[in-house]
Structure formats: structure tokens, C-alpha cells
């Protein structure tokens, strides 16, 4: 009974939200606020004609390549430094600074270095993903249960076996909670770089729409970008679930705190 009530409530909220959107477009005119129907239909037309897919694919490619380039060293580094806490301390102020620095402000620099093509976007995404993932993995490596390591050493595990069987599985949840934050953020970064200067991608689609005063295209492209972000988040969640079957189900609300 209760489940249906929640569902019904949510449908009501959805109808109210779409209604408000429709009212806004009636009030301001479709020139300023496109209607829900126009947006959705443009989204599907554009998707089936392949245009949306092409631009979305471009954005996703930037985000994924950038994420791999940023995340792989960020995940490996804390493991390498696990036995060298002094090195972690030496790097700490630089990493904290890099984490805190507004990476998006680097966009013009990357465009200067790598041009307006895909490379500058990849660099931006990588710089964003690296620091988030480094600190997530580091906290995972640090939160390691010393008793488990002791137990493994007592039964005769070597250093590399400890790393593989104890440290890594323990850090996986942290690695994923980092990805959960870093990937959507990375897509956002790619879109921003495209807004600033590009000739392809969802951000470009938005920018072109705005230049031509085609608000429906702006809305449809934003919808496309949202779908991409949610889809990537979903993939990360599902992969995590698959890999972390041994974990008791936890409240997910906290993991999204920094998202």
C-alpha cells in the first residue's frame, strides 16, 4: 500500500513540475523558455537523427579519456606511497593545494596549450578527476584495518599479497565513492570547456543554440547532458554494487554529500 502511495505522490510532483515549466513558457513566451513538449520532442528527434548522439559521444569520449588519464595515477599513487607515510606528508600541501585550486579556471590555459580540440578538454577533465580520486583512494588506503593486516601477516602473507588481498578490497569502496563524485564532475568540466571554445560536443550544442536564439535546442542539449551524467552515475553505481556484494547495504545518502 505504502509503496503505491509514494509512487503516486512522486507522479503528482512530476506533473506539478512539468506544469510549472509549461506555465513559465506560457508566461515568458517560448522565445525565452521552451515548452516541455518542444524540448522532449527535439531531444528525441535529435537523438534519432544521430546529431545528439554524435555530440554526446564526443563529450563522453573527452570525459572518459580524461577520467582514465586522471584516475589511474590517482589510484596507483596512494598504494605506492602506503609504506612511505613521510612521502605522503611531503606531497600533502601540494595535493591539498591542487585539490582546492579552481581547476575550471585552468580551461583557458589548456585551450592555449592544446588548442580548441579534444586534447584541451581531456586535460581539464584529467586535472579535475586526479585530485578528487587521489584523496578518495588515500582515505581508503588509510582507513585500512590494521588488525586485518596483522592477521594476514600472521598467516604468512607477503607484502604484495597484503596489498592485493587486504588493502585493495578495503579501498575499493573509497575508490568508487571518488569516481561517483569525479565522473559527473568531469563531464561537467568537459561541457564547460566546450562552452568556452569548441566545435563539437554537448556544450557546443548549447552554445550554438544560444547564439541562434534557439532555446529549444539549448534545453534539449542540457537535457542530453543531464541524461549522460545520470547514465554515467548509474553505471558507476551498478559496477560498485557488482564488485561490492560482500558489503552490508549502506545508506547511500552520505556518499553523495560531496557530489
Amino acid at each position: 500500500m505504502k509503496r503505491y502511495r509514494v509512487l503516486a505522490d512522486r507522479i503528482v510532483v512530476l506533473i506539478v513540475l512539468i506544469g510549472l515549466w509549461q506555465l513559465a513558457s506560457l508566461y515568458f513566451g517560448t522565445y525565452w523558455v521552451s515548452t516541455p513538449w518542444l524540448t522532449i520532442s527535439r531531444f528525441f528527434v535529435s537523438t534519432f537523427s544521430g546529431e545528439m548522439l554524435r555530440h554526446a559521444g564526443y563529450t563522453v569520449e573527452e570525459a572518459l579519456v580524461g577520467a582514465v588519464i586522471g584516475a589511474v595515477p590517482a589510484i596507483i599513487l596512494p598504494f605506492l606511497l602506503r609504506r612511505m607515510p613521510a612521502w605522503v606528508s611531503v606531497l600533502d600541501p601540494f595535493m591539498v593545494g591542487g585539490y582546492g585550486a579552481p581547476k575550471l579556471a585552468l580551461a583557458p590555459l589548456f585551450i592555449l596549450w592544446f588548442g580548441i580540440g579534444i586534447e584541451s578538454k581531456i586535460a581539464l577533465v584529467a586535472s579535475v578527476v586526479f585530485f578528487i580520486e587521489y584523496f578518495s583512494t588515500l582515505s581508503g588506503v588509510r582507513s585500512l584495518d590494521a588488525k586485518l593486516v596483522q592477521m594476514a601477516q600472521l598467516v604468512g602473507a607477503s607484502e604484495s599479497q597484503v596489498a592485493r588481498h587486504i588493502v585493495f578490497p578495503g579501498a575499493v569502496p573509497h575508490i568508487f565513492s571518488g569516481l561517483r563524485i569525479a565522473l559527473p564532475y568531469g563531464i561537467g568540466a568537459a561541457v564547460i570547456a566546450e562552452l568556452i571554445s569548441s566545435n563539437r560536443g554537448l556544450g557546443y550544442l548549447v552554445q550554438i543554440g544560444a547564439m541562434n536564439f534557439d532555446i529549444t535546442q539549448v534545453f534539449a542539449a542540457i537535457l542530453g547532458a543531464t541524461v549522460v551524467v545520470l547514465a554515467v552515475g548509474w553505471v558507476v553505481d551498478e559496477t560498485e554494487k557488482l564488485l561490492l556484494r560482500w558489503r552490508p547495504p549502506a545508506d547511500n545518502a552520505l556518499q553523495q554529500v560531496n557530489a
Binding site: L14, I187, V191, L195, L202, I215, F219, T226, L230, G233
Partner: peptide
């Protein structure tokens, strides 16, 4: 809806 709307790349709204 709050969670979904989080997925909107907010900067993309800028040109509009």
C-alpha cells in the same frame, strides 16, 4: 527529483 536535478550540468545553463 532533487537527486536527478543534481545531474544537470549547471554551467550549461549559462548561455541561456
Amino acid at each position: 527529483y532533487v537527486l536527478w536535478s543534481q545531474g544537470i550540468p549547471k554551467y550549461a545553463l549559462a548561455p541561456w
